[in-house]
Amino acid sequence: MNAWTRMICRILVVLMAWTPFQIAQAGMIGTDQVVTSSSSADRSTLLNFVGRSDVASQLQTFGIDPATAKDRVAAMTDEEVQSLAGKINAMPAGADTAGLLLVVAVIVLIWWVVTKR
């Protein structure tokens, strides 16, 4: 009896470990798979799985709570996730409260006047 239980447990463990990576399944093939090139669908799905949790935890380090970070990543495409993974710090983050424009305008103007003559 005990041996049976242990056996079943083992099978379940194996199945649970295996399930998330079983990509091909019966049913409709999704549009996002069609539109993005999918020659290596399995590999990119696995990479994506890692990429998404990676980007979500990065967002958390920038002050977002875990649940919100997960939602935000969920709205991104695979490519977008890949473009962010490991690079958020180097990306431009639009923020400025205007103001510097005038300085830029004046400097550009002066520069042009000087270089023109």
Partner: peptide, 16 residues
Amino acid sequence: YLPERKGSLQVEMLAA
């Protein structure tokens, strides 16, 4: 919005 960056990423503008 990303508080620690005091700004917003392009990808998130698209996603939101």
